[in-house]
């Protein structure tokens, strides 16, 4: 996989930064890599930052939901942060409300919620 997504372990939390140029293959590869890394590093939570993404279409939306699902199964609660307002509006218009995905306003919020076990 190219530099389309970065994974960083910070204080037992896996941070995932998704690049604007990520393509379908990259994001599918990210699923595998994230699952491996969370397991290998015993991460206690996952925060996915999509602030670089100009759009989230149905394909990327579906993968994000799957990433969160994988996190839950690995006992690593997953938060999505950084969604642009126009992206949120467009996703709702598409009917993709991502009900299974927990969101937080920013990285700090996500980390403090993970720390307090919510």
């Amino acid at each position: 996989m190219s530099q389309a997504a970065g994974l960083f372990l910070v204080d037992e939390i896996m941070l995932v930064a998704i690049d604007e140029n990520i393509d379908d293959g990259d994001i599918v590869a990210l699923q595998d890599r994230l699952a491996e890394e969370v397991h290998a590093n015993d991460a206690q939570g996952i925060v996915i930052d999509i602030s670089a993404l100009e759009i989230v279409d149905t394909f990327v939306g579906r993968i994000i939901a799957q990433l969160a699902g994988i996190g839950v199964l690995l006992d690593a609660p997953t938060y999505l942060v950084g969604m642009r307002p126009a992206v949120a509006m467009t996703l709702v218009e598409l009917g993709m409300t991502l009900p299974s995905v927990r969101t937080a306003r920013n990285l700090q919020h996500a980390v403090s919620r993970l720390r307090s076990g919510r």
């Binding site: 394909f59 642009r84 992206v87 467009t90």
Partner: peptide
């Protein structure tokens, strides 16, 4: 505006895929 651009770019992404 951001919302108009986002709508069209998202729709374009779907049909290109």
């Amino acid at each position: 505006k951001a919302i108009r651009k986002t709508r069209l770019v998202t729709a374009a992404s779907e049909i290109f895929r």
